[in-house]
Design a binder for these strands. Structure first.
Lengths: 266, 266
DNA sequence: CGCGCCGTTGATCCCGGTCAAGTTGCGTGG
DNA sequence: CCACGCAACTTGACCGGGATCAACGGCGCG
């Protein structure tokens, strides 16, 4: 599975900048959810003690059946969760971008899916007990983690709707919109453009179609002026129209909690 | 949406028996995950203070966009989560059976999906603050709730694989196996038989196909001797074969934590 | 220079969707 | 008691989105 993806996220440099204060992205994302006090934030900074692991594109970070030993906080690059069937079929069931957290190891149990690097990645390998201490000390952080998990769960439900009821073109449109929105919220890319390091095969794995049909659908979208996909970058000429095509409803990302910051911070 | 389902879970009587000690099923399910101490269990019993709500079949328990005000602990009957598209298409994205918990309200935010009763249901309407107090007092319970949520998430991932890569027949087979296993683990039904109050339309909503094709697929399964579905009961003559057809792998339900009970209890 | 990954396109097939028309069975009201 | 209505289930005929199989071009890298 090791390979060498030619264009490893041009924006990595920016990610690194954002992570100058290394856990800031996680703090931002947790903060958005529940509102953190100064003490909560300082407690979070202890995560910086965790080692930073680097892996090449296409590396398997954790395989189905493994007992994961660390909680992973993505620092740069993209990764995905995926599941296999014994006859070779497989489906991507989730996407990690920088700032995303994988809590699989937080409550120990064998993995029911695998995690693979889509690009070269780096992540903090956080020992579960470190997180556990943190949560015992600052219960609000535990709530924040539950929040994180609930949002991940919510995205999965939208993907279920995607795979169950949207057409191939609608699925791809929906995925593209979700992508710019999530990346935008995390501080990468604008409202209508972002990095897109996935191959067409990767994209087919995400959308539950075949690579061939993925190619044809992309051509159609290109001809319709819905998206442009060149040199590992995604451009959306008319986001409003793409959202219409995708029947996109942003409610499932729960990105609108900013107003509630006031409640807990002090 | 109100209707009158003729056969409201013959086993309700048994459910009621099981709930003689009303939260026992929740305790069992949480206990399986993390192991609870005597104090944890006694704390859980405070949930009995929550009011027991009854709703008819086909009632909407919570609608997309609502701000849910209570955490729901299913006591009897079946319910499901579902999502709609503006043009009328919709997809079931999760199933509630007795003992299941919906934490949507635990961290307040508008619902990104709806919850509907598939049969007459009753559930405990737990005020979030009650749960919050419980968790602050007994952090282990917070961990148990996170566990619950992680397993729910895991089931959703398996459903993603289902919708993305399994054929109609495989999906239905997989759903049936999951059902007997989950119901069995919750103490309802045997390894090869259980209640099945869903209509073919409900089943089509779950499996992401049309009711017509659902009917034909059921016929095929019946002819193959894979399942029998009569008078709201599901019978599986040869569970092993059905599992093979479904390419079923039980790892995602994480039902094998019993051995770890010892760790925390005292 | 050649191999392998990625993207692209054509030809053909088939699973599952769509439309339409029954049938069955139960609950309700005359 | 029967008539009616409606929801669930069933089946047939046809269609089409997407899968499958196969081939080829571009290009980065060893």
């Amino acid at each position: 599975m090791l390979s060498n993806l030619a264009c490893p996220l041009p924006k990595n440099i920016i990610y690194l900048g954002i992570f100058a204060s290394r856990v800031i992205s996680l703090k931002n994302s947790l903060d958005r959810f529940v509102g953190l006090s100064g003490k909560d934030r300082r407690a979070l900074e202890r995560l910086q003690a965790a080692p930073l692991v680097q892996r090449p594109a296409r590396a398997t970070l954790v395989a189905e059946g493994d007992d994961p030993e660390v909680v992973r906080l993505m620092q740069s690059g993209w990764a995905c969760r995926y599941k296999n069937l014994p006859d070779g079929r497989h489906q991507t069931v989730g996407l990690f971008i920088p700032g995303d957290l994988d809590l699989s190891a937080y409550v120990v149990r064998p993995m029911d899916h695998s995690i693979g690097a889509l690009t070269p990645v780096s992540y903090y390998a956080i020992p579960p007990h470190l997180l556990e201490d943190l949560v015992n000390e600052r219960p609000r952080l535990g709530e924040a983690l539950l929040w994180q998990e609930l949002v991940t769960s919510s995205i999965q439900r939208e993907w279920l709707l995607n795979l169950g009821r949207r057409s191939a073109l609608e699925r791809m449109a929906h995925f593209f919109v979700e992508l710019v929105v999530r990346l935008g919220a995390a501080g990468h890319g604008s409202a209508c453009e972002c990095a897109f390091p996935l191959t067409q095969v990767d994209l087919a794995d995400v959308t539950g179609i075949t690579p061939v049909h993925c190619n044809r659908t992309l051509r159609e979208m290109r001809q319709e002026g819905l998206v442009e996909l060149r040199s590992k970058r995604l451009q959306i000429p008319d986001l409003r129209r793409l959202k219409q095509v995708a029947m996109y409803n942003s409610n499932y990302l729960h990105l609108d909690k900013e107003s509630e910051h006031l409640h807990a911070a002090h």
